[in-house]
Amino acid sequence: MHSDRAGWGLKIAAFGGLLFLHLPILLIFLYAFTTEQRTYQFPPPGLTTQWFGVAWNREDIWPPMVLSLQVAAISTVLAMILGTLVAGAMARTRFFGREQISLLIILPIALPGVITGMSLRSAFAIMEIPFSVWTIVLGHATFCIVIVYNNAVARMRRLSGGIMEASADLGANTFQSFRYVLLPNLGSALLAGGMLAFALSFDEVIVTTFTAGQQSTLPIWMLNELVRPRQRPVTNVVAIVVFVVTFVPILLAYYLTRGGSETAGAGK
């Protein structure tokens, strides 16, 4: 008779693995309070809260911050519109080309980001399109569509297929069915998709480096600080900001779609 309890070895490996996933992020918080600004000395020689004030007053942080928020907001709205449209089409019965379309939607995240980035860069070069907020948005919205789409489709799978027919049967036209039946049932999944898309866009760096030109988003600013560090704890403060701005929507998305499988897996 085998006992149905996990062995100690498995328990240690599993919980150790989870800790391994989380502990490094805590260090970011610790280092934001260190008094040492030229090295990553551990343990920190002293603790201070001065870097939050310093970061607040650093003028080179604000424009990237604003740009990142702008890009994430525009990309999210675009992705929510486009992702919802595809999901709406895919929710209907089978049609010719369905498989090809779903492959096309997943492609931008299935292929490495460097390819998406380099592709866009090639297209901009050929068409002589100057870099702007919109060139960044073009890339971000493309890979955010799939996030919204995945969420919407997962929710649709859980809904009873008959409710749209029931609505029409009771006298509602297509627009009334959308407004009174589909949207209320899909709303939270779409919102969750939008939040994940926002988090993803706000944090994206790989595609962005190819589509931003001389512009600097917050992740690009961070990347420059990582390659050529100046005031290291200030970078930590910014890292905390980035972490929180992405973490909160992710957590909200989780609560909006609890019980489903929307946020799992093939995301980023």
């Binding site: 009873s160 008959g162 029931a166 049967d169």
Partner: peptide
């Protein structure tokens, strides 16, 4: 009007 097999009541 139709009474559907799985009832198709609006869950919300």
């Amino acid at each position: 009007n139709t009474v559907f097999q799985d009832y198709a009541l609006f869950p919300h």
